[in-house]
């Protein structure tokens, strides 16, 4: 039964992923549609970050926020994303000690 559930999950995850592969080239894209599609990554990143980041430590929302600010500060230095990740993990680790 568990494997069946996993297969069901796989199908409902896969289908929305691949449908655009079949439909996107049939649409003649107007400039505004192009602008919209180009903006999606940034809108998605925003929605993925907040408010989810406040639930990193369920009982202390500010810990996630501070970790995120540290990640942003490091990213401003134009270094690899990895350093933002490590910096944020360390921050949360220290704040929850």
């Amino acid at each position: 039964m568990t494997m069946l559930t996993i297969l069901g999950m796989a199908i409902v995850t896969m289908v929305p992923r691949f449908i655009p592969a079949f439909i996107m080239d049939r649409l003649a894209l107007k400039p505004w549609v192009n602008k919209w599609l180009n903006a999606i990554p940034f809108a998605a990143l925003g929605a993925l970050i907040f408010p989810g980041i406040m639930s990193v430590i369920e009982e202390a929302p500010w810990v996630g926020i501070i970790g995120g600010l540290v990640a942003a500060a490091i990213a401003l230095l134009n270094v690899n994303v990895i350093f933002s990740v490590i910096g944020a993990i360390l921050t949360v680790f220290l704040l929850t000690m």
Partner: peptide, 30 residues
């Protein structure tokens, strides 16, 4: 648990630095 959020922020920040409008878009959807 912060790792992926930090990655999203680390990916977004350089684009915002180059083009502030991107930051506005991200904050609106937040």
């Amino acid at each position: 648990g912060i790792a992926l959020y930090a990655m999203f922020i680390g990916l977004l920040t350089p684009s915002v630095k180059k083009e502030w409008r991107i930051g506005v878009v991200a904050v609106i959807s937040m």
